[in-house]
């Protein structure tokens, strides 16, 4: 499973939706995420990819689409050094 698929599975899991959002579709506008699903998703991303999202990065805009999440996770994985 590649990184995009991993992220999609996490989003579908926390949103309890069976459909997959388009890569650039707003996860908030399309109902995949709300105020409480967002922290659930971030916790899952931290666990799945072994990264820690600092408080300063807890900006909902960074996590508003699959593409944005993937960009963020990729950057954090590189920063982590693996």
């Amino acid at each position: 499973m590649d990184r995009t698929e991993q992220i999609l599975e996490i989003v579908k899991g926390v949103s309890k939706k069976k459909t997959s959002p388009d890569p650039d579709e707003s996860l908030f506008d399309s109902g995949y995420l709300d105020s409480f699903a967002l922290p659930d998703m971030i916790a899952e991303i931290e666990r799945e990819f072994g990264i820690e999202v600092p408080d300063s990065d807890l900006n909902p805009q960074k996590f508003d689409s699959i593409a944005r999440i993937e960009t963020y996770v990729s950057r954090m994985v590189i920063k982590r050094g693996t």
């Binding site: 908030f28 105020s35 409480f36 967002l38 922290p39 971030i42 408080d55 807890l58 900006n59 909902p60």
Partner: peptide, 12 residues
Amino acid sequence: NGRSVITQAWRK
């Protein structure tokens, strides 16, 4: 801004 309030409170 509910998203910000909840996300920050959840962490802080």
